[in-house]
Design a binder for these strands. Structure first.
Lengths: 158, 158
DNA sequence: CTGGTAGTTGAAGTCAACTTCAAGTCAAGG
DNA sequence: CCTTGACTTGAAGTTGACTTCAACTACCAG
């Protein structure tokens, strides 16, 4: 046994559930790394599969690839990450999910009070309020996490 | 008083919180309609503001513009929609939000059981499971509403 | 009538996260 | 050695929801 546990891209794709193109894309972004054969083909370590599982989990939670990259970069360099390392990373997700749930619940409750009144008022309705209006209107408005929110339609002020 | 309550695009944009470009875009898609001055400029009826409020609300709930268009097309033709018409449209959103909330809660609960174990197993972890694996694995997996889910990364089978 | 603000168009650009394609090259069983 | 399937690359395409641009034209207060 020598190089037997270095996997080519097709194998990684099949076993991770990602498309080959996605795996290559992730490598280009630096989310994954691979050694190369003398002929230039990628060979991934087995631990790449766990990394990909992490990526999928993070994407399911709602992280962008940029955030995923940041998270992966915070892993200890050098050694292969342990369970504890992975667990530490995913701990912060709990809060994120809580926020999103809270936002949706608030939106639903706002909707409940809107249904039947058919208001959809531009300045009063909690559901149709643009974000900035909601912000100044205090509680009862403004809910969606950024990931879910459709912003004002105007270019973000900077 | 004759044409006084026909509003130009800038006014509509300002009062709805959408960018002018978005308003024009919506008109092109058929979500809004406008008459024209002799010089070819758009003039929107005041009721357009309510329509835009509906659009924003729908987008906040998570509808695509295509869905919004379908919803708007289901409004009674001819007469200006009443409160009741708008209210009927938004009633279905409740269910949609419930589903999304449920999905997120399930995901969070799955996460809770994953944190600390650091598993992120490709075939067992509820959070990192690709959608199809989750589907066949019965309860305990598969959660995110399509709007939130990151699919398998493979081209959708057709 | 004039100037300045507001409006017009179609085409192209943007963003994220990939996928698809073409034109090859590599790896390995027979 | 040969064939076949797996792999390589860079560039371009995809989707949705817009935005930006350039080159004009309209509207209206003074």
């Amino acid at each position: 046994m020598h190089t037997t546990d270095l996997l080519p891209v097709g194998e990684i794709a099949r076993r991770s559930g990602f498309a080959e193109s996605a795996v290559r894309y992730y490598e280009r972004l630096g989310l994954l790394s691979a050694s190369r054969t003398s002929g230039g083909q990628r060979r991934f370590e087995r631990s790449t599969l766990r990394r990909l599982a992490f990526i999928r989990a993070a994407r399911n939670i709602g992280l962008s690839l940029e955030e995923v990259a940041a998270a992966l970069n915070s892993l200890p360099a050098g050694r292969t990450p342990t369970r504890t390392d992975w667990s530490r990373l995913s701990r912060g997700w709990r809060r994120r999910l809580d926020d999103e749930i809270e936002a949706l619940v608030a939106l639903r409750d706002g909707l409940d009070s809107c249904i039947g009144c058919g208001c959809l008022s531009l300045d009063r309705c909690a559901i149709s309020n643009p974000a900035d209006a909601a912000r100044t209107d205090g509680p009862g408005a403004a809910y969606l996490p950024s990931r879910l929110r459709r912003e004002t339609g105007r270019p973000a002020e900077r």
